[in-house]
């Protein structure tokens, strides 16, 4: 049983992210892209888990330019690290952007929200 478990865990990167979310090497980290509803149809996109070896501010600057929206980096006190906030529902665009800039692989990005 234990063997099955370990093998099954090897296949999935998402199952192991509890242990590796805060590891220093940015290889196995998942990037969570969430969407939060504001008033009405307005949304906020929250990008979480981009490796700290990259400058979040510069990434945000480019994202703002590409997506035609505003955004900022929010430093959280909890263990979320630096979080990028963008105006509007930019989830798919964020995914494309991160993949095209080779900041993350497609398998590393996980989209959440409705």
């Amino acid at each position: 049983m234990a063997v099955e478990m370990s093998i099954e865990n090897l296949k999935k990167t998402s199952a192991a992210d509890d242990f590796q979310d805060n590891s220093e090497d940015g290889t196995m980290n998942l990037i969570h892209v969430r969407c939060q509803q504001r008033n009405g149809r307005k949304m906020i996109t929250i990008v979480e888990g981009i490796s700290p070896i990259y400058s979040q501010h510069r990434i945000v600057k480019k994202m703002k330019k590409f997506f035609n929206c505003n955004g900022n980096v929010h430093k959280t006190e909890q263990d979320f690290g630096d979080v990028i906030q963008l105006q509007g529902d930019q989830r798919n665009k964020v995914k494309e952007f991160l993949v095209s800039c080779e900041l993350a692989k497609e398998s590393q990005i996980k989209l959440h929200g409705v």
Binding site: M1, E4, M5, E8, N9, K12, S14, A15, D17, D18, H32, R34, Q36, Q37, R38, N39, I44, I46, E48, H74, T76, Q78, F80, V83, Q85, H112
Partner: peptide, 25 residues
């Protein structure tokens, strides 16, 4: 959390539910 299958008896862990960072709305 572990997911156990009744048909093939395989057992694997599943991701824990995390809400992540919540922006102030």
């Amino acid at each position: 959390f572990f997911l156990q299958c009744e048909t093939c008896q395989s057992r694997c862990s599943v991701t824990s539910i995390k809400s992540g960072y919540q922006a102030v709305t």
